[in-house]
Design a protein around this nucleic acid. Structure first.
Lengths: 346, 346
DNA sequence: AGTCGCCTTGAAAAGCATTTCATAATTGCG
DNA sequence: CGCAATTATGAAATGCTTTTCAAGGCGACT
């Protein structure tokens, strides 16, 4: 509609933005290929030429057009990262956890000089994914949080698209995954309960999420492994990924309260504490509680929350590394990162 | 080095990924321009041709190569988003707040069919910024959190690069900003203290951050506006953006404790509660406390934290809208979004 | 001294889609 | 029925960089 304001003039500051490799070549009195070689650090150039070209390029603030580069190469040097905003928007993830993961990935990619394209929301089926990939928007995908999309990811794995997923690691998934030891994490929580002589355990979380299912399995393992005690593993409060104090409260309304709760996240654990307090139940007096992710506020919470800590510091770099291997044509194995328990008041 | 694994074969699934517009043209028995026109919804094509082309394209799962598109057009339809990971990694931001902002931006961009490029960390000076822009990685920038980079952003504003910043809005900044009413938020906190008859106020936060400085100013305004009371505004604990229970504790060690604390974030508020509790001080009995951002756990905290709520739901869309206007050549005005106080136990 | 081979450089093609301009086909009108 | 005016389509140029291939210049070796 408008579009005249900028089009008309060409003598302003805009002109400099149009600088191309040819311009640099002309100014340095060489050909474009030579400029290209210099800028890419090729050894096939005289030191003297190199310096001249670099000098000109710097003086004019020239930067290579990445899009032309991407077009020329088969590789785009771009990685699409998919976040689970969907559930986050509803207050679900809440933890800065995914954010930390993203920071790690961003850093690792930048080191390797890869662009990070945040994939649009709504890439929910294989078709949308493939289109996105074919449009060469990206060489590969990093999916942060598999959510309930496991099936989609599995069929994606067959499509020859480089893909790494943060989440549950299962041997038969058919795609490369990096994740923490959810089973082990769950077991740690259970062992904590055992050592506190708790007998009525409750798991809070939606086990349709593969990661959470594994944590639950770990918890069960611990229950079965307990000697001389019969553990009562209460039916799961199979609530959505979203956990609020209200949902917990309404669950509590019907039953005799548990004496141990394993919440799928620290944020959920906080909600649990609130709901239990309303019923007059205080941790650790009346029940034990273990959260997950070890987010900073958990340490300051009252009571301070015992939680499972995942090694997120290396996660980003690892995800990127695995993806790069795939892009090179390899088929790297999945990785399970260790977890540990941070024992606090609950 | 390797590179043979994929290169050699061409009969596998790879071949289909190489599908180009020419292929579609040949298959549909038309020319490339026609395919292009069809795919871009140009009216210059017969209905019959259109259908044939679309049919072929769909059948073969063809998707336009965005990089070629970007190269051809002056606009890349890509927006770079800059996050303040730096401080986050040190446990600083912590709040899911920035994350929410990002989600909003992502959604708004996807609606407008714009790619979201997460800009690499370390874009700290004007030069790096400009290079990034010139490389045509992006048509414009959205900066989430101005941090202490205000000066850099100002000089950037003069460089003819479309830019919108989430953060403090000041009339002389020279760049377009969208942010919440930090001054008003600070005043709300102060008024809360006044109504609770608190007299020794402490602000926790690093006022080198423009946003935080404004909140502090708002607090001061409320102090000055109080009738019949002399408010004692304690020297700021001018700690880094990172606030831990330890920093608060060491600050407390030297002075008579305040009876009101305004923390720059809910996460910081939680740290404050922890440190005060260690000194035997309980809110709201011994002091009032107001946080910022209204993150979910604040409601479940014990005591439940009174906080300032920002309208993040519209923020993302607004940021994108302002940026688009700039890319079109306009110079949109900055916007201040309203804040409100969520009064809870503290 | 002559030939071979290496090193540096440039011309041209390729990578994929869009846009301009020209052409062929069709319609409308006198 | 012939000419002008549309309309649908294609050829060629364009955007910017990288890669291949060829050529020219130089020293080294026999």
């Amino acid at each position: 509609m408008s579009g005249e304001a900028t089009k008309g003039r060409s003598g302003r500051g805009r002109a400099s933005a149009r600088l191309t490799m040819q311009d640099i070549a002309r100014l340095a009195d060489v050909s474009t290929p030579t400029v290209s070689r210099v800028l890419n650090g090729s050894p096939l150039v005289t030191e003297e030429t190199r310096e001249r070209v670099l000098e000109v390029a710097r003086a004019h603030g020239y930067a290579v057009n990445r899009n032309a580069q991407k077009l020329r190469h088969a590789r785009t040097n771009t990685v699409a990262v998919m976040l689970d905003f969907g559930s986050h928007r509803h207050g679900a993830i809440g933890d800065p956890f995914v954010f930390e993961l993203l920071a790690g990935v961003s850093e690792a990619l930048s080191v390797r000089n890869q662009d990070l394209l945040l994939s649009p929301p709504g890439l929910d089926d294989v078709r949308a994914f493939r289109d996105f990939h074919r449009a060469r928007g990206a060489d590969g995908f990093i999916v942060l949080g598999q959510g309930t999309r496991d099936e989609m990811l599995r069929s994606l794995g067959k499509h020859d698209i480089p893909l790494v997923v943060w989440g549950a690691v299962s041997s038969d998934a058919g795609y490369c995954a990096v994740g923490s030891d959810n089973l082990g994490g769950g077991r740690l929580a259970g062992e904590h309960f055992v050592s506190n002589r708790r007998k009525r355990w409750l798991f809070v979380g939606d086990i349709r999420h593969e990661e959470l299912r594994l944590r639950y399995e770990g918890l069960k393992l611990a229950a079965q492994g307990a000697r001389n005690v019969a553990i009562d593993l209460l039916p799961i409060a199979s609530m959505a990924f979203t956990v609020t104090a209200e949902t917990v409260a309404s669950y509590l309304a019907g039953v005799a309260p548990p004496d141990a709760v394993f919440a799928f996240s620290d944020t959920a654990a906080m909600a649990v504490i609130g709901a239990f307090r309303d019923r007059g139940l205080i941790a650790p007096r009346d029940y034990s509680l273990v959260g997950y992710n070890n987010i900073p506020p958990s340490a300051h919470f009252h009571p301070a929350i015992t939680t499972i800590d995942q090694k997120t510091d290396v996660a980003g770099a690892l995800l990127v590394e695995k993806l790069m291997e795939q892009i090179e044509g390899d088929r790297p194995a999945s990785v399970v990162l260790p977890t540990r328990m941070v024992r606090r008041e609950t």
